[in-house]
Structures are given as structure tokens and as C-alpha cells.
């Protein structure tokens, strides 16, 4: 059963430049690339449709300049879309009043930024408590809550530091703590780890997954790093020149890239980390002698050693525990050497 849609984004456009909305209107809300170019406009986000479901990590991936930040800012209405509809919990964000919007942002949304965007004059504690302060929550209450989230992100003991006294990774932990202080339903992260060193980045990704296991937020996560995307995502939207070219699970993306552009990205990923047993198993084969069981949703990486060590194939069980196929060492080798697995 599918989870309910939290954020529904329908035919959203953001065009930069003079007279953008007039041009958009005059071309029936669907100007072509040539039209935009002729008028000297930039189509930062073009005809984007997305549904984001409760509790999923939805990653928007694309090269720099492909419009990811603009899209996520449209979703939070930090920038005014040129056209389209954005339904948040069934309500069109583009027609809500300023006062309502402030209320929604205070209670239901959180956002983490690439350059951390901490307020330099506030301590870690004050930065974290800032969203609550803005709401007028008494100091004692908001600080108590802030201490909880600071502990959650592993910064206990640094409450009275100033941002400039922290490392990049620590600063982003504060950014995360701040965005979680109000217990948002919908959590936006715009390239939160891109400004960090690779080692720290991995550590933060693990941390992020740990948090999500505790909190089960609905997440829109932006990145330009495909490895990061497949590591974190339940579903990925790939963007190019303002358009979404494909929305799929990491596995589908690797198996069935919609365009050459997407394929180019998937080419260098390590497939054993993406593909699941289900994607490479052989269906049927109830009568074959097997060495044991593996789950259909397990990543190849997780079972590779076991499969390889065994002469016999393994039985594949689906979520209900029914045998649906078999998988053997040949399949693992195919995955590892990148033999094409078109279904």
C-alpha cells in the first residue's frame, strides 16, 4: 500500500528574466526552450511534476545549474514559481496568504542549507532555538527543546560555542539541529553535505540515515553527487536544464536509465550497492537444490560473499516468505563486472 502524498507539485515553472510571467502566460504556460532563449530568459525550472510521499527520502539530483535549488525553493515558496500548483497536505501553497505561510513554515517545514547559514552572532544553543524564539516560545522551554536536538545530532557540550568555533561538519550538525527543533513534517535539505570534505561527508550521510531511522520525516534532499543520491534515496528525480528527466528508485535508475544523460551518471556507480537480489534473480526454479535463503530486497553487496562461497545457488524469498526464485554466484559476478542486465 502506498503512503499518502504530502507534497504534490504540478507543472511547476520558474523562469528568470524580464517579463517572465507574461511570456509564460502568452505561450499557454508551456514556452519552448527556443522561446525562452529568444526572449533572453532562463528557464530554471520547467514543467516539473513530482509527488512526494510521507516518510520517504526523495532525492533531487542534477549537475550544478540544473535548477535543483530553484525547484526546492519553489516547493518551500522561498521563490515565487512563475506557474503551476504546489499542494502541501492538499492545500495550494501558491494561494496561501503570507500569514498562513508563516504559520506553515513555523510548524511544518524545516530546511538545511548548503553553506550552513548559521547566524554568526548566536551560540549553538541560540541558533538551534532560533526557530522557536521567532515563534515567541519562552526561553526556558525553547532552550530545553534545543538541548534535546543538540544532543540528538551529537553536539552535546558545545551549546555555548559560536559557529565560527566549529568545524564545517559540526556547523552543519547545528544547521540540522536547528531545522529539526520545530519537529517539521517536511524536511528540505539543499546540498547539505556538498561543502564538506569527502570523509566528513560520508560520516554525515550515516548520521543522516540514523536520524531518519529515528524520526521518519518526509524528506526532499538535493544533491549533485550521484553516489550520495543512491546511498540515501528511496526515490530519485534526475534534473537537467530545469526539467525532471526521470523519477525512479535507485535500482530502476541503474537498470533502466530513461536517457543517455541518466545512463552516463549510472555508468560509474558500483552496482552491487544499488541492485537488489530481486533484480538479478532467476524466477521459478522451485526444484533446484539450494544452499539457503536470501531476501528479495537485500542488496547484492550484502549477500555477495555468501553467494560466492557457495557452490549451490540460494533460494530467494519475497516479503511474505514465499520462494520466488533463485540466485547464484554467476549473478553476483555479472553484477560486479557490469554485464548489462536489461530486463
Amino acid at each position: 500500500m502506498q503512503k499518502p502524498i504530502i507534497l504534490d507539485c504540478k507543472n511547476v515553472w520558474k523562469i528568470y528574466g524580464a517579463q517572465a510571467s507574461r511570456i509564460h502566460r502568452e505561450h499557454d504556460g508551456n514556452p519552448s526552450s527556443e522561446t525562452l532563449k529568444d526572449h533572453g530568459l532562463i528557464g530554471a525550472v520547467r514543467a516539473v511534476n513530482l509527488q512526494i510521499r510521507q516518510g520517504e527520502i526523495f532525492v533531487i539530483m542534477g549537475l550544478s545549474g540544473s535548477g535543483k535549488s530553484t525547484l526546492v525553493r519553489c516547493l518551500s515558496r522561498l521563490v515565487e514559481p512563475t506557474g503551476g500548483e504546489i499542494l502541501f497536505e492538499g492545500k495550494d501553497l501558491l494561494t496561501t496568504s503570507d500569514a498562513e505561510l508563516i504559520e506553515i513554515r513555523r510548524k511544518k517545514m524545516g530546511m538545511v542549507f548548503q553553506q550552513f547559514a548559521l547566524l554568526p552572532h548566536l551560540t549553538v544553543l541560540e541558533n538551534t532555538a532560533f526557530p522557536l524564539e521567532v515563534q515567541g516560545i519562552p526561553q526556558a522551554d525553547r532552550e530545553a527543546r534545543a538541548r534535546e536536538v543538540i544532543e540528538l545530532v551529537g553536539l552535546k557540550g558545545r551549546e555555548s560555542y559560536y559557529p565560527r568555533q566549529l568545524s564545517g561538519g559540526q556547523q552543519q550538525r547545528v544547521g540540522i539541529a536547528r531545522s529539526l527543533a520545530v519537529e517539521p513534517d517536511l524536511w528540505f535539505l539543499d546540498e547539505p553535505f556538498s561543502a564538506l570534505d569527502p570523509l566528513i561527508r560520508r560520516e554525515m550521510q550515516d548520521e543522516f540515515l540514523r536520524l531518519q531511522n529515528l524520526l521518519h520525516k518526509t524528506i526532499v534532499f538535493i544533491t549533485h553527487d550521484f553516489d550520495e543520491a543512491i546511498r540515501l534515496a528511496d526515490r530519485i528525480a534526475v534534473m537537467k536544464d530545469g526539467k525532471v528527466v526521470q523519477v525512479a528508485t535507485p535500482e530502476e535508475l541503474v537498470l533502466n536509465p530513461a536517457t543517455e544523460y541518466v545512463e552516463e551518471f549510472t555508468r560509474h556507480v558500483s552496482r552491487s550497492k544499488v541492485l537488489t537480489v530481486g533484480a538479478v534473480m532467476t524466477r521459478g526454479g522451485d526444484d533446484i537444490k539450494t544452499a539457503g535463503d536470501v531476501g528479495i530486497g537485500q542488496r547484492i553487496e550484502a549477500v555477495a560473499d555468501m553467494l560466492e562461497a557457495s557452490e549451490l545457488p540460494f533460494k530467494v524469498l519475497d516479503d511474505e516468505g514465499n520462494a520466488v526464485g533463485t540466485i547464484g554466484r554467476q549473478a553476483v559476478i555479472d553484477v560486479l563486472v557490469g554485464r548489462v542486465l536489461k530486463k
Binding site: R73, S76, L78, I102, E103, I104, R105, R106, K107, M109, G110, M111, F113, A117, L119, F130, P131, V134, Q135, R178, S179, V182, F188
Partner: peptide, 8 residues
């Protein structure tokens, strides 16, 4: 943007 997003 932080200011806007926390509902200032």
C-alpha cells in the same frame, strides 16, 4: 532564506 523558512 533561513529567516523566511523558520517563519520570521
Amino acid at each position: 532564506d533561513v529567516g523566511v523558512m523558520v517563519g520570521c
